[in-house]
Design a protein around this nucleic acid. Structure first.
Length: 705
DNA sequence: GAGCACTGC
């Protein structure tokens, strides 16, 4: 069995040194400072990312905390770092995992009296990271969270007038920029995890750069910008920030052995299975395995197969605890990956790329990387977003490998050949080039960016891509041309106030006209979080019979509304959710989102009415705001979108899957094996015509007859 | 006729 995957002798490397070159990757001709070369293991904090589900605990001994700070490798570079950063407007800081840069740099700046005139901001792509980092740093400063050190994430602002070091999500800082595009509250902005290239961080690059320049011109408090990244490949960052110097920090990572396959693997699932049991039969049971696959279905199937095989292993072989892990898995089941396995059991965690960055599991000795990932691609020609299984990038492969060496030396099995690896894309395409830009454009316009068409993105989306977003905003009535420039209409300005996709903001803003704002708030909140419906594949029949009582023949929006209403009316709790196959975590989130949206409506003095039992008004309102996302039944029984006549199908998750309504609006198109419409609502074709006569003048034919 | 990577405001 071991030979089947065909692994040649291993290569050794230190993961965050990453791709082959290390010292050599310092861009030539640029001022580079190698700040530190301290190594060695040993305890101590400074681990940046805590597992998202287990909050770090504060150390009971303050002296120990201070000692831990001093033990971090970065401490020896403190003086040198401060001297550098004091004089720079912008800097790029490369730090290996475990260097402690995220927790220490803000404190060094503050202690060194840099940026004390205002707030030092540190952005994070994820909420949990912002919260746990703020907790950690306020512990280290021996202050109460929310005083000197605080955090701001959606629904949760733990800051005060005393706050000088503030951790926040990148999306939150972007929201703040709508209110003040010069970000005057801040003396220093640290954009952390920049290598992840989230859409928010990418927009912030441009916003922060512009604010820095503008503040200088106006003679205001200078803005210091520090970009922090884990990859050595930082040419882009440095170039973008006017050749900002690159500072390098070493961290502590443990060596990891890498095995490639000898032959390309046609069946990566089979190869993964073989590798798992090869390791299982050879390694001590305390060594856990992390396997990267692409999605829920695949993971559930593989989990079952592993459990079945594990039942029939020879004597003396350890037992196996197989744990699936993916985002839509209920919270309680996700938690199991952090619990220790019973004695004599080996944990085998089978995960999506959620374990690449978002969830850090300790004690992983082996990583099995299939080299595959399910990811969204954007096709600017068709404007379609496609969700497809594809090869990972090199950066992603290194990230996966690094998950094996967090506490001790590790081993990574790559289920592809070294030649194949060399052909992987160097970097993952940044999110900003892969998704619909309507929200981004709306936000930039709300910040009064002089010309959104030529905005200074680090990695520019194609002009088609930007144009498609502008066209969508125009259809929604958000834009006007004034003095040869694009600006927001009053409607557009209101839309920008909502933390929503523009079309959903428009739905809310139209709802008073249809007297159904209460219902629309619920529906939009339901659509803007992950599905509240939990569908364990093994209990499909049970799910269907329980769900029957909620189903509306008018579509998914009204079905979801029924679920939410019943939940509220019966004083819904976790027990109710469990009985009704509802994801309680997402349900709680819906209530929070709804409250936030309702507050925004109230601040705008919008009348908030309920349509009571009338569902027609709700459907009319959806028709009037989602008119660009409609499909009609064709004579042959299939569906085609109204605008481009793209063939589409009703997604199997829809309550309308077995029905054939003449005309529907949908909230999302998803291309997998086919082009599927998700979240449908039955509408009358006439309403669409009322909503946008120009748009439909030529397009609506069949359904009206 | 049969299926949903991951964040975030």
């Amino acid at each position: 069995m071991p030979e089947e995957a065909g692994f040649p002798p291993a290569k050794k490397f230190r993961p965050s040194a990453g791709p082959p070159s290390r010292a050599g990757s310092c861009p030539p001709g640029r001022r580079a400072v190698m700040l530190l070369a301290a190594g060695g293991g040993g305890g101590g904090g400074g681990r940046r990312q805590q597992p998202s589900l287990a909050q770090p605990s504060a150390s009971p001994y303050p002296e120990a905390v201070e000692q831990q700070r001093r033990n971090l490798p970065i401490f020896q570079a403190r003086g040198q770092l401060l001297a550098q950063l004091r004089n720079l407007d912008s800097a790029v800081l490369i730090g290996e995992t475990g260097s402690g840069k995220t927790t220490q740099i803000p404190q060094y700046l503050y202690e060194g009296g840099i940026g004390r005139q205002a707030i030092i901001a540190v952005t994070q792509p994820r909420r949990v990271a912002a919260i746990s980092l703020a907790t950690r740093v306020s512990d280290e400063k021996r202050t109460e969270l929310g005083k000197l050190v605080g955090y701001t994430v959606r629904f949760d602002d733990v800051t005060s007038d005393d706050t000088k070091i503030k951790f926040l999500t990148d999306g939150m800082l972007l929201r703040e920029a709508i209110l003040d595009s010069l970000l005057r509250k801040y003396s220093c902005i640290i954009l952390d995890e920049a290598h992840e290239r989230t859409i928010h961080t990418d927009v912030l690059f441009g916003v922060v750069k512009a604010a820095q320049k503008r503040r200088k011109e106006l003679g205001k408090l200078p803005l210091k910008v520090i970009v922090m990244s884990a990859t050595m490949d930082v040419d882009l960052f440095s170039q973008y920030f006017n050749g900002a110097p690159v500072l390098y920090l070493e961290g502590r990572q443990h060596p990891i052995q890498i095995f490639y396959t000898k032959q390309p693997q046609h069946d990566y699932l089979h190869a993964a299975l073989v590798s798992v049991f090869q390791i299982h039969q050879e390694a001590p049971s305390s060594h856990d395995i992390l396997v990267f696959l692409t999605g829920q279905e695949e993971i559930e199937a593989m989990s079952k197969t592993c459990r079945d095989i594990a039942k029939h292993l020879p004597d003396g072989c350890p037992s196996m605890l197989v744990l699936p892990l993916y985002a839509s898995l209920p919270y309680a089941q996700q938690l199991r990956v952090f619990q220790g396995a019973p004695k004599g059991y080996r944990k085998v965690i089978i995960s999506t790329n959620i374990a690449e960055t978002s969830i850090t599991i300790t004690g992983i000795k082996y990583v099995v990387d299939t080299g595959m990932v399910k990811a969204k691609k954007y096709n600017p020609d068709s404007g379609l977003e496609v969700l497809a299984v594809q090869r990972v990038s090199k950066t992603q492969a290194w990230q996966r490998t690094g998950r094996a060496g967090r506490e001790d030396s590790g081993i990574c099995y790559r289920l592809y050949t070294e030649d194949e690896f060399e052909k992987f894309e160097k970097m993952t395409v940044p999110e900003i080039q892969r998704c619909n830009l309507a929200s981004v454009m709306l936000q930039l316009l709300a910040m009064k960016v002089p010309n959104v068409l030529t905005f200074d993105f680090m990695s520019k989306p194609s002009p088609d891509h930007i144009q498609a977003a502008i066209a969508q905003l125009e259809l929604l009535g958000a834009l006007e041309h004034r003095d040869g420039q694009l600006t927001l209409t009053p409607m557009g300005r209101k839309m920008a106030a909502f933390p929503l996709e523009p079309k959903f903001a428009k739905t809310i803003l139209l709802s008073p006209k249809f007297h159904c704002t209460e219902e629309i708030l619920t529906i939009v909140a339901l659509l803007s979080v992950d599905s509240i419906l939990y569908n364990p594949p093994s209990r499909r029949d049970e799910v269907q019979s329980v769900r029957k009582k909620f189903v509306s023949s008018e579509g998914d929006h009204l079905t979801l509304l029924n679920v939410y209403r019943t939940f509220k009316n019966t004083g819904g709790n976790k027990e109710w959710c469990k009985e009704n196959f509802v994801n309680s975590k997402n349900m709680m989130l819906v209530a929070e989102v709804r409250a936030q949206l309702r507050d925004i409506c109230i601040k705008m003095s919008m009348p908030i009415l309920s349509s009571r039992g009338d569902t027609e008004n709700i459907r009319r309102c959806l028709a009037h705001s989602l008119f660009m996302s409609t499909a009609e039944l064709q004579p042959d029984g299939s569906y085609a979108t109204t605008d481009t006549h793209q063939p589409v199908a009703i997604h199997p998750s829809s309550v309308l899957f077995h029905c054939k309504p003449a005309c529907v609006v949908y909230t999302e198109l998803l291309f997998t094996n086919k082009c599927y419409m998700r979240d449908l609502c039955v509408v009358d074709a006439e309403w669409l015509y009322e909503a946008a006569p120009d748009f439909f003048r030529k397009k609506l034919r069949t359904a009206r007859n």
